[in-house]
């Protein structure tokens, strides 16, 4: 935006933000105004500005997670106007304020899932994802016991597909966006990644059965193949992986797992 004299002026925004002091207290929405928001700011930098403002006014700053701020660590994640990571297919940290208009009201909420309890404000606990991985999201190979890397050839197509599915950053947007609160896309990505490689075959049946059991145990919902997850995924993991997960599960059941 340019003022008549050509200098840039910032946007003025109204923010509706979920505030919750801790995991056990109830929360509610609060309204804040921020001014002088530059369109070059990232969404999180805009929240930094709000927090400086709150700090100066003696109010508790809004807690939110972020770390790498370059779209790869998966730490950030906000529900912005009802969309996980906001209106652009990327992570919250890579969303920039040029995607918003002057005078807009933006509603910001944490990921909502009972398996991701809110710890404070916009910060949630995604430990459930780690516990799902613990149930088989790996290939068992002790350090030093690996064979020579070139002893197994992997067709390029398989390696590429495995890579595509391994790009999942574990941010939880799939769960946040899913009307059922399911983590099937997250699970499917890992199962497809490891199942696509020769190294992952030995534990393939056990992996899918145990991971799905843990997923259900954590209280995630079941998949009804709606597809909100894949459109919210910043890494564009396709719905294929959920079908692959189901297929692997069926195969495992056939094998009597």
């Amino acid at each position: 935006m340019s003022a008549p004299d050509g200098t840039k002026t910032g946007m003025k925004l109204t923010l509706n933000i979920w505030r919750q002091p801790d995991a056990t207290s109830p929360g509610k929405m609060h309204t804040y105004q921020v001014e002088d928001v530059s369109e070059d700011m990232s969404f999180l930098e805009m929240l930094d500005v709000l927090n400086e403002q709150l700090n100066a006014a003696g109010e508790d700053p809004v807690a939110f997670d972020s770390d790498c701020r370059e779209g790869i660590c998966g730490m950030c994640g906000l529900m912005i106007n009802g969309q996980a990571h906001g209106p652009v297919t990327t992570t919250t940290c890579q969303l920039h304020m040029r995607s918003f208009k002057d005078g807009e009201t933006i509603t910001i909420e944490p990921w909502r899932a009972d398996a991701f309890p809110v710890l404070k404000d916009l910060v949630v606990d995604r430990g459930a994802f780690d516990r799902i991985i613990q149930q088989g999201g790996y290939i068992s190979v002790n350090t030093g016991s690996a064979p020579e890397a070139h002893s197994v050839q992997v067709p390029k197509e398989d390696a590429d597909r495995a890579f595509d599915m391994a790009t999942c950053i574990g941010c939880g947007a799939c769960v946040a966006a899913c009307p059922n609160g399911s983590a099937s896309l997250f699970m499917g990505a890992k199962i497809t990644h490891l199942g696509q490689l020769p190294q992952g075959q030995a534990e393939r049946d056990k992996r899918v059965v145990n991971m799905v059991a843990q997923h259900d145990h954590e209280g995630f919902g079941g998949c009804t193949n709606i597809g909100e997850c894949t459109s919210a995924c910043p890494k564009e993991i396709p719905l294929d992986v959920i079908s692959q997960l189901n297929k692997d599960l069926r195969t495992a059941m056939k094998h009597g797992r």
């Binding site: 790996y138 190979v141 690996a146 890397a149 070139h150 050839q153 390029k156 390696a159 490689l197």
Partner: peptide, 22 residues
Amino acid sequence: TNIIDQCVAQGVPFAREYGGLL
């Protein structure tokens, strides 16, 4: 060199050539 062996065995999807080698 051991690192590469270890990571491949863990399922790290390194780029491969059409022949299937790294």
